[in-house]
C-alpha cells in the first residue's frame, strides 16, 4: 500500500506541537515542543520504562488528550475531535503492536489479522482491494510475515510461539493500509534472532505498505534499523519523574 492520503512524502504523518500532558493538573509528565514523523518514515524512540512512552503512544493513538498543544495525524488535529472521532482516526490510520498478548484468544489467526477491518470501513475496503478478498489479503500478509498456511488455518492463537504471535500482530497492524504503525516494545519478549527477524519483516512490510513506523523500546541496539532514532528523555522537556502510571 502506498499513501492513500494525498499528503506528499515529505508531509508529516504525525506532528506534535507544544504538548503538555499530566495525569494531574499540577504535575506535567510530558512536555514536547515539537515532534513529527514524516509519512513512510521509521522512527526509533528510546526510553526506559517510566519515561512516558506509553503516555506518548496514548496521545498519538488518541486515547489520551493533552492539556495543551496540538496532535496532528495526517494533518488533522485530533485534539479537536470527539473521543469517538479520535477512535475512528485510530481505526482508519493506525496499527498497533504491543509487547505481548496482542491477540484475541477466541478468534482464529486470520480473524485476528482482520480485526481492524471490523472497526474501519476504510481499512476493510483497502484490504479487500489489496487481494482477491479480505481473507486472501490476510493470508498473503501472513505468508509474507512467515506464517504458513498450516499455522494460519489449524492453530489456535494461543498455540503459536511468541514470535509467531508478534508476527500475526504485525500483520494485523499492517492490514488495510494504515498510515502509521505504533510498536510498543514488540520485540522485548523475543530472543535475539527472532528479534532481528521480526524487526526486518515489520520494517519491510511497513515500507512496502507506505506506512510510517513509530517504534518504542528501551533497547538502543535496535536503533540502527530505523531512519531516525531519538530519545524520549531528550524530547521531553518536563522534569524527569516517576512512572506514567
Amino acid at each position: 500500500m502506498t499513501n492513500h492520503d494525498d499528503s506528499p512524502e515529505t508531509s508529516a504523518c504525525v506532528r506534535l506541537s507544544n504538548i503538555h500532558f499530566g495525569w494531574t493538573t499540577d504535575r506535567t509528565l510530558l512536555e514536547i515542543d515539537a515532534f513529527h514523523i514524516a509519512a513512510g518514515r521509521s522512527v526509533f524512540l528510546r526510553g526506559p520504562s517510566g519515561s512516558g512512552k506509553s503516555t506518548l503512544l496514548g496521545l498519538i493513538a488518541g486515547v489520551l488528550t493533552p492539556s495543551e498543544g496540538e496532535i496532528a495525524i495526517l494533518d488533522q488535529d485530533i485534539t479537536k475531535l470527539s473521543a469517538a472521532d479520535r477512535d475512528r482516526v485510530r481505526a482508519d490510520h493506525l496499527g498497533v503492536v504491543f509487547q505481548m498478548f496482542n491477540l484475541l484468544p477466541f478468534l482464529s489467526v486470520l480473524d485476528n489479522v482482520l480485526l481492524p477491518c471490523r472497526f474501519s470501513d476504510r481499512r476493510r475496503k483497502t484490504a479487500e482491494a489489496d487481494g482477491e478478498s479480505l481473507a486472501d489479503t490476510g493470508r498473503r500478509l501472513l505468508a509474507r510475515l512467515g506464517l504458513n498456511e498450516d499455522d494460519i488455518v489449524h492453530r489456535a492463537v494461543r498455540d503459536l510461539s511468541v514470535g509467531q504471535q508478534q508476527r500475526v500482530a504485525a500483520a494485523r497492524a499492517l492490514i488495510g493500509g494504515p498510515s502509521l504503525i505504533i510498536a510498543d516494545e514488540p520485540t522485548s519478549a523475543l530472543d535475539a534472532d527472532a528479534k532481528d527477524a521480526f524487526l526486518s519483516l515489520l520494517l519491510e512490510e511497513s515500507e512496502a505498505a507506505g506506512a510510517a513506523v513509530l517504534f518504542v523500546s528501551h533497547d538502543s541496539g535496535l536503533a540502527d534499523h530505523f531512519d531516525t532514532a531519538m530519545d524520549l528523555r531528550e524530547l521531553n522537556s518536563a522534569p524527569a519523574q516517576g512512572g506514567a502510571q
Binding site: A61, A83, A84, V96, F98, F101, L115, R118, F119
Partner: peptide
C-alpha cells in the same frame, strides 16, 4: 482487560 486494550487499539470505542 488485555482483550479490551487490543480492541481499543484496533479502533473499538469504549462503547463498542
Amino acid at each position: 482487560r488485555r482483550e479490551m486494550a487490543v480492541l481499543r487499539a484496533v479502533g473499538a470505542r469504549p462503547g463498542h
